[in-house]
């Protein structure tokens, strides 16, 4: 266990406690940790993105295109096409200059169009048709009562949920009004389940920090105590 590791662990411990101090009230120590986190994250992502995207995809390919055109006399259209993406990227950044900010709409439109074109067919297939298919299940399975109850609940849940979101008819009367109320109940149950999972996720993060203090920070404290003659 080197000194660098111990410093790192203590820094992580200090920053964890600094963030936790917000639970009492907002304070300068919390603000320091928050700003440090935002700054380090932005810097890290920027460096990663430069090395993984800009450098190999844009600069790397333009260098290849330039080399093949100038030195070999071959016009490499595929490599030069990356310049088009680079220009679109620059146009997107122009958003920060109010006078020419309208230029950024063009690459944005390109991205929206490309994204929609690529995603609509697969999303339609995987999230609508496949889900519809799985809803079309048998509700009469006398030999498997467990599955039968599940399938009936699934059918009721889907139908009443859809009726709740059907706004062309007023939600009144026994059929539409009643089904709509059942739909609300189904939605509430699903929100409850989602909330339960969210609580679990947040508690997990707290568990993670406490495990860090027990398994990583505490052993370094022991080492420090021993090195200064307190055991």
């Amino acid at each position: 266990m080197g000194i660098g590791y111990i410093i790192g662990i203590w820094l992580a411990g200090f920053l964890t406690i600094a963030i936790f101090t917000f639970l009492y009230k907002d304070n300068p120590v919390y603000k320091f940790a928050e700003h440090l986190y935002v700054g380090v994250s932005a810097g890290y992502i920027m460096a990663i993105d430069y090395n993984n995207i800009l450098k190999p995809n844009l600069f790397g390919n333009i260098a290849i295109a330039y080399d093949s055109t100038v030195n070999k006399g071959v016009f490499d259209l595929a490599a030069w096409s990356y310049l088009f993406a680079g220009v679109l990227g620059v146009m997107l950044i122009l958003r920060v200059i109010p006078k020419v900010s309208w230029v950024s709409r063009w690459p944005l439109a390109f991205m929206v169009g490309l994204g929609a074109g690529l995603n609509i067919p697969v999303t339609m297939d995987a999230t609508i048709l496949a889900q519809l298919n799985s809803t079309l299940c048998s509700v009469w399975l006398p030999n498997d009562p467990g599955t039968m109850v599940f399938n009936i609940l699934l059918l009721i849940g889907v139908c009443t949920g859809l009726i709740y979101f059907y706004f062309s008819i007023e939600h009144k009367g026994i059929f539409i009004g009643g089904a709509s109320r059942v739909g609300i109940a189904v939605l509430m149950i699903s929100f409850g389940a989602a909330f339960g999972y969210t609580v679990m996720a947040r508690i997990s993060l707290l568990v993670g920090r406490f495990l860090f203090f027990r398994d990583e920070w505490w052993p370094t404290l022991d080492i420090i105590m021993k090195s200064i003659g307190i055991s």
Partner: peptide
């Protein structure tokens, strides 16, 4: 972490 998770859920 599961013991802690279970007790925290019970408390909530």
């Amino acid at each position: 972490g599961m013991d802690a998770q279970s007790i925290a859920h019970l408390l909530i």
